[in-house]
Amino acid sequence: MADRLITSAKELSNSEYFYGHRACAGCGGSLALRLAMKVLGPRIFVAIPANCMSATSFLHPQVAFSVNCMISPFPATGAVLSGIEAGARALGLKDYHVVGFAGDGGTADIGIQALSGAIDRGDRVIYVCYDNEAYMNTGIQKSGLTPYGSKTTTTPAGKNFPGATGRKKDMFEIVAAHGIEYAATASIGYPEDYLRKVSKAALCQSTSYIHVLAPCSTGWGFPVEETVEIAREAVDCGLWYLAEYENDEFVLNKMPKEFTPLEDYLLKQARFRHLKERDMEHIVHGRDKKWEKILKNWK
């Protein structure tokens, strides 16, 4: 049971609660789960909808979790978490956490209704969205969190389209707009920031939400040993940001003095390698507009 803030990896338990899964080498999502569960400890109920983590970890009898866990219906992570919490409360269980790990599509597309309902009810559950920016489990299809210019199997890049043309939904702010007790963004490239946020979520008395960027070597097209580096660079180049929402305020946790070159980040990844000058400009423009808003409105 996490009952204090954790700010360093040294404070983590040596116990592993997510072990022996079949995810790809260099999987960012599995790191997000493993670290969060180390913070939350063994007395947890985990719900995971259809995603890479359930596909690679739940195959009876070789389940990769040593804690209580279940697969939720794809659209229903938020509702299943609420049900677990209500059941545990009604049965008088003590000292436990209820946590869900859904991907970007499972959160921002098909699962957004159930997530919104859970926050609305204020059930004491932790919802972690691990964002690898497409439906990776099923073969890299575009989700509502796929960024502009990203090549996926449903947004091919060609003469007419530069890959995905939409704008990545601001899930963090959508969640915050519910007036949630605690929401945060994180990146597995900044693990200590992520751990602190998970431990903070665990201290909440109602719903909390963490949106952690978790690069996918297979879907993004970079060498498997560079996952953490890429996750760091996403923050450093300004395309992702580390922030929190609590007490009705947005707080920026990390203000890069200057952004690292965007092109370096993008061109390392096969999904962006086709981008043309004007696409890059479009992305820079989007980034700068976002930061203008962040700097103006957030603490």
Binding site: F45, A47, M70, S72, P73, P75, A76, G78, A79, V80, L81, S82, G83, I84, E85, A86, G87, A88, A90, L91, L93, Q113, A114, S116, G117, D120, R121, D123
Partner: peptide, 20 residues
Amino acid sequence: LHVESEHSAMSAAIGAAAVG
């Protein structure tokens, strides 16, 4: 539980049943 859809009504019942 005031849920937001029937899909969630049954999903929440599933979650609750999953803890007994």
